[in-house]
Design a binder for these strands. Structure first.
Lengths: 254, 254
DNA sequence: ACAGCGCACATTGTACACAACCCACTGCGC
DNA sequence: GCGCAGTGGGTTGTGTACAATGTGCGCTGT
């Protein structure tokens, strides 16, 4: 438990690929990935000192990474009580999905107008990677790549505030999928992604938006948001109760 | 230059009104207010040590406040080169307004559905405060309160991600207004705000959305975004060129 | 005189030490 | 036996020292 992966501390300026301030990004990315791939379960406490030892950096860096993750609502930062992996409630999930429908519609319309051939090629490449991950059985990477597809699409929309918002929404969506996805693993979203790219390339805004909305419906329908899914993980089941900021004890009021 | 306002350091836990971690908020709010009221011009460098002395706190706190402001794109954080007050370009301003139209429409529709009587009363109160500020000639406070009105409206929409996004958009909008507002100071937006509240209270979604869109049009038309307004402030005119992260000199390439 | 290099200062980035806080455990009293 | 206050361990919050980086000035050579 006290071993640390690559020192990452002793590389003063790794060649030229690593620019200054990359340490935060590395820590951020690793934690984010771990959460998406459910190696870190919702509700798990993220101790600053422990993470510092693991990554070989001081708490200062960890703190910045956690702060960033908290800004995207992927971790919950409780003053004086540390950070935990967020476990969005059903209501929070609904709100995220509502916001995503809104944003994805706008992004799709803008992407139809502005997407360049190069961006479309990149999007196709990402769909390939996504399909590979799922066929490899790497579910976590698949979820992540699926999210990155939507992020790339947002970039094609050429609207900085929307990109930033989309990043936050995609992060939360990934977390929600990881937490609520129902047993039925028919995760063929890459098909829909391909169709979407085709519609955008054809500059058919109506079709593209329709496909995107159906895509959202499909994602939605794969989740058991109506009835809290029966999970075998007690923590996941009760974590949303245990993490209220209320000063009361950690037990649920009877 | 070396005097500091209220120590704010020596109050270990000011009574019970000030919860832990309020120092950040205070610093954040003060800097934000100063930027909105244009006591801090776009492009101004925000030295950590100087701010620390002014507010009587260490760089740690300042750093967090700046980080938060950077997240809302109100200040620009340049690695190893310090923070400066953001000076949004015309293109950035356009993107912010496009995103706001999107979000405001959604918020208005949701507010029509969910706004409570209490929230409507609070909104009316805010419009009153806003009108008072403008009639007092306190333009900065007016801009700020006008923004807070839209934030309050977002709260009535009961969608956390939208609220968070709206906060960022409103901050940037305020900065843009402060920077680009044309001489014509007919800033009677509080009238439109009142009409909007009436429509929401009447649960008339169509009317409310129309009013909101017209409101956006009016804000838009008050700005000189079409042709870079001739400013007497050289910094403001060229700051968007001078602030690129490029390693080159601060002079524009000839 | 001007261009280019190098040094020195100022400012930010990081780590660490200490203080404040939360939580759990223990022991006492009821 | 149960509840509650006091106390100790451990974690987070904040300030500060030191290292690394960026910037500007002066020097030197052509």
């Amino acid at each position: 438990m006290n071993e640390q992966l690559q020192p990452l501390k002793k590389q003063p300026r790794a060649g030229k690929a690593g620019r200054s301030g990359t340490q935060d990004d590395i820590v951020y990315a690793h934690i984010f990935e771990a959460i998406l791939e459910q190696r870190l379960a919702p509700g798990t406490k993220l101790s600053e000192e422990a993470l510092g030892e693991i990554f070989g950096v001081s708490r200062t860096i960890i703190r910045r990474a956690l702060s960033r993750l908290a800004h995207e609502s992927v971790v919950l930062l409780r003053p004086n009580r540390g950070a935990v992996v967020a476990s969005p409630s059903v209501e929070e999930a609904r709100q995220v999905f509502m916001a995503r429908r809104l944003v994805e519609r706008a992004i799709t319309e803008l992407a139809v107008q502005h997407a360049t051939a190069e961006q479309l090629a990149e999007l196709r490449q990402m769909v390939n990677d996504e399909r590979d991950s799922f066929s490899r059985g790497d579910r976590g990477a698949g979820i992540r790549l699926s999210g990155e597809f939507h992020l790339k699409l947002a970039e094609a929309a050429k609207n900085a505030p929307l990109i930033s918002f989309q990043r936050s929404l995609v992060s939360q969506t990934s977390l929600i999928i990881a937490q609520y996805e129902s047993g039925n693993r028919s995760h063929c979203s890459y098909d829909e992604h391909t169709q979407l790219i085709d519609a955008i390339e054809a500059r058919d805004a109506t079709l593209a938006v329709n496909l995107m909305m159906h895509h959202m419906d499909h994602i939605d329908s794969k989740l058991n948001l109506d009835e809290e899914s029966a999970s075998d993980d007690l923590h996941a089941v009760f974590s949303h109760l245990l993490q209220t900021k209320k000063p009361g004890r950690s037990s649920v009021k009877l």
